[in-house]
Design a protein around this nucleic acid. Structure first.
Length: 801
RNA sequence: GCCGGAGUGGCGGAAUUGGCAGACGCCCGGGACUUAAAAUCCCGUGACUCUAAGAGUCGUACCGGUUCGAGCCCGGUCUCCGGCACCA
């Protein structure tokens, strides 16, 4: 009789053995093929690991463990994305330096990761706040600066009054700060920007070369937002006299004949030039509005006429009025539009409100009642040389005409904005730039990297929009690296996304003091074979890191244009009430509690068994007990074992089937059904006298999910050595197929019984067997068989006349 | 509004993509073991009806269609979740 299953001591024991034997350390030199499994490294908050970590980490740990057993040299690293506001705020509140807070949090996270049995290569840990690491973050920034991709620009920014910090567009959700949900306000500020827009087309095009879920590709495409159209120049008249040109961007050059007025954004230079009192008032009002307020006012269009100013429609020669309205955004296109109320909903609403003429130029709708925006069905009317053409043809012809006449040109625009790359906070990478009164912005020489954060006592944010670093005189005041004059350091720091934009490269060669990673190491490990992460990073980290990687490819640091071969995305773990887990809702479940009460192996099973990995799922304590019982039953199978190198004949089929099922399900992220198959196998084995060989199959298949109990059992019943050194199981396809099959018998499409026949029986034999069935025979009596549909090895459907 | 995804027992969820709906687990009911309980093991468990150890009817959000056969395909409707949102 075996002892009872006691997870705690055995989990400690095996975690220690794994550590001392270094079985999970990846080697940069190996005979084996490489495989790089990546998880999104955590932000080490004070709260410790939560189920937003355990779900993806456990899943990828399963994959890493399977790949090792499949004979790959696996890189499965972990690190710490440790710069950021929560740490800084906690540090301020508790009067502990953020570096110390970070050190403690990392230690706690590492312990928890180890307690969960994650097979990370802990010798390759990276920490984005370590100067050895952020030296290279700064280095990449300087390379971008050299090539004009990092620049400073005065522009309206999203300012979070609570975080006292600017935000990237990607961090503003419904007009609120992504982190603290304060309403974001607009402020004009001189900002560091990264020119991600220079990579817009490539970021879009190369989505076709990678294996990402469709929903991820779609979200990135929408965010990049490419549109094709034309820029058109309109002559401007002020008080009847020529006053230059107004260039608009339109995706519908075909509708030019229907343009009855113009609209420019309140920030447009022309609006400033010709503003009267009413216009100025309108400009002031829109400047005060937050993005949120602007979108709130979506339905009701507002605007004012720009007095004395008109434009000439180049197609018709008609003079048309110019309006100022905040439904036109300065940040997109040219900040000015030609309004075609017949065929654009916004223009239509505006025209109705201001009683402007509506001209139908595409037939098919009723422009008196609504804008007709269909581009598939209509034909051009009231449009001179375009009449009778379809929209697509008219677009082409008008664009050509504009080009011939020198009135316009084809144009492509993106919604993607440049990346606001500065934060006015202490706990981030210092930007290695010096402002010199003579030389302007000067890059710190590479030899002076890393530019370390000064260790100071006070680093509270300011209300002025200045970084706390600006108050530290001895750090700020510096000599210009170029001319030696008195100069000042840049005091903004980089956003949290900086360190995470390239961390997967550092893992390849994490201790290299000379380069961000050696060319050799990068060549060997990159690209990442499988990267799993959250949907919430699709237009943030995932897009940013693709951008940085493409830049590094362009300057010859990495050898391929895309960093990640395959990306998958897990669903959220919700609280038991179906809401998002949050401290404020008080519904947070701590995975370490489950580890303490039931063991790490149980916790790992639960988080994967609980539902479809790719979908959101509510945490449920009820799932725990089932997983724990399963492990106990696997443990108890020991009681009935008998020696033997062969499979028990009656188990052979189910063993091969389970090997197939578990192997295939893991590849497809169907961890829940893989575990269900293992539970079924356990139920099959229960009560039977299994051989050691049978049991070894269970141990190996279960080991990626529940590694501790499996090492314990392998040590007793296996073939020696640790499990990661064992080979994964192969199945014999012939043995996954049964000799006989149970067919469903339908009569007229309704299930009436089942019949067991030899596999691949002839159709006639199947029909005969079905007709002989006790339940079917009476239904067949006195009727003629009109038709019989036989689906091989599945079903027979009898249709009577 | 636009673009994605989803809706299946008391519950979490399965279903090889058109072929026995409800795998696996939880809960619940019954039994075994026990002085008893817990634990464990075995059996049962979608709903309804009947002439009831058997059989029938209904059943995958709703309405309709295609098909020998639909959770799956097509048309329409409703609800929920995620993303984008005055992007010209």
């Amino acid at each position: 009789m075996s002892s009872t299953y006691e997870p705690k001591p055995m989990e400690k024991k095996w975690q220690a053995k794994w550590e001392e034997s270094r079985v999970y350390a990846a080697s940069n030199r190996s005979e084996k093929p490489k495989y790089y499994v990546l998880i999104e490294f955590p932000y080490p908050s004070g709260a410790g690991l939560h189920n937003g970590h355990t779900r993806p980490y456990t899943a990828m740990d399963v994959l890493a463990r399977v790949r090792r057993m499949q004979g790959f040299n696996v890189l499965f690293p972990i690190g710490w994305d440790a710069f950021g506001l929560p740490t800084e705020n906690y540090a301020i509140a508790n009067k502990i330096h953020p570096a110390e807070v970070t050190r403690r949090n990392i230690a706690a996270f590492r312990d928890q990761a180890k307690a969960l049995g994650y097979s990370f290569d802990y010798s390759r840990e990276v920490d984005t706040t370590s100067p050895d690491y952020y030296k290279w973050t700064q280095w990449i920034f300087l390379k971008m600066f050299e090539r004009g991709l990092a620049y400073k620009s005065e522009m309206p920014v999203n300012w979070c009054p609570s975080c006292k910090c600017v935000l990237a567009n990607e961090e503003v959700i419904d007009g609120e700060c992504e982190r603290c949900h304060s309403e974001v306000v607009r402020r004009s500020k001189s900002q560091w920007m990264l020119k991600i827009t220079a990579y817009a087309q490539r970021l879009l095009d190369d989505l076709d070369t990678v294996d990402y879920p469709a929903r991820v590709k779609m979200a990135q495409k929408n965010w990049i937002g490419r549109s094709e159209g034309a820029e058109v120049d309109f002559k401007v008249l002020a008080s009847g006299k020529s006053a230059g040109e107004l260039t608009v961007y339109t995706t519908r050059p075909d509708t030019l004949f229907g343009a009855t007025y113009m609209v420019i954004s309140p920030e447009h230079p022309l609006a400033r030039e010709f503003a009267d009192g009413a216009v100025r008032e309108y400009q002031n009002a829109s400047a005060k509005k937050s993005d949120f307020e602007r979108s709130e006012l979506q339905k009701e269009k507002t605007g004012v006429r720009l007095p004395g100013v008109s434009a000439v429609n180049p197609a018709t020669g008609t003079e048309i009025p110019v309006f100022v309205s905040d439904y036109v955004l300065m940040g997109y296109g040219t900040g000015a539009i030609m309004a075609v109320p017949g065929h654009d909903e916004r223009d239509w609403e505006f025209a109705r409100k201001f009683s402007l003429p509506v001209i139908e130029v595409v037939a098919g709708g009723d422009v008196g009642k609504a804008a007709f925006t269909d581009t598939e069905t209509g034909k051009m009317v009231n449009s001179g040389f375009l009449n009778g053409l379809e929209v697509a043809q008219a677009k082409k012809k008008m664009t050509e005409w504009l080009q011939e006449k020198g009135l316009g040109k084809p144009s492509v625009k993106f919604k993607l904005r440049d990346w606001v790359f500065a934060r006015q906070r202490y706990w981030g990478e210092p930007i290695p730039i010096v402002h010199c009164p003579h030389c302007g912005m000067v890059a710190l020489p590479e030899s002076e990297l890393p530019l370390t954060l000064p260790m100071v006592k006070s680093y509270e944010p300011t209300d002025t929009g200045e970084s706390p670093l600006s108050a530290i005189d001895e750090w700020v005041s510096v000599k210009c690296p170029k001319c030696g004059a008195d100069a000042k350091r840049e005091t903004d720091t980089m956003p949290q996304w900086a360190g995470s934009s390239w961390y997967f490269l550092r893992y390849c060669d994490p201790h290299n003091p000379k380069e961000l990673a050696s060319a050799e190491a990068l060549k060997y490990w990159m690209d990442v074979d499988w990267y799993n992460g959250g949907m919430e990073h699709t237009t943030l980290h995932l897009l940013y890191s693709r951008f940085w990687h493409k830049f590094l490819y362009d300057i010859g640091v990495v050898g391929m244009p895309e960093p990640y071969k395959k990306r998958t995305a897990h669903g959220l773990i919700l609280a038991e009430d179906g809401e998002k887990m949050s401290k404020s809702a008080g519904n947070v479940v701590n995975p370490m509690d489950t580890v303490k009460s039931y063991g790490a192996d149980t916790m790992r099973l639960v988080i994967l068994f609980i539902g479809d990995f790719e979908k959101a799922v509510s945490w449920s304590d009820k799932a725990i007990v089932g997983c724990r019982r399963f492990l106990e039953r696997v443990w108890a199978l020991q009681d009935n074992l008998r020696p033997g190198k062969d499979f028990t004949p009656e188990l052979e089929g189910v063993l091969h089937k389970t090997i197939k099922k578990v192997t295939e399900d893991i590849e497809a992220l169907k961890f829940n059904t893989a575990i269900a198959a293992l539970m079924s196998l356990c139920n099959e084995m229960g009560g039977k006298a299994c051989t050691w060989a049978d049991y070894q199959v269970m141990i190996k298949l279960l080991s990626p999910f529940a590694p501790h109990i499996c090492e314990e059992l392998w040590a007793k019943y296996g073939l020696g050595g640790l499990l990661p050194a064992q080979s994964w199981l192969a199945y014999d396809p012939a043995k996954t197929i049964d000799d006989t099959v149970e067919l469903a018998i339908q009569v007229g499409g309704k299930l009436r019984g089942t019949v067991t026949v030899p596999r691949d029986s002839a159709d006639d034999d199947v029909v005969a067997a079905a007709l002989a069935d006790a339940r079917v025979a009476p239904l067949a009596a006195g009727k003629t068989l009109k038709r019989a549909i036989v689906v091989k090895n599945k079903l027979v459907n009898l249709i009577f006349g």
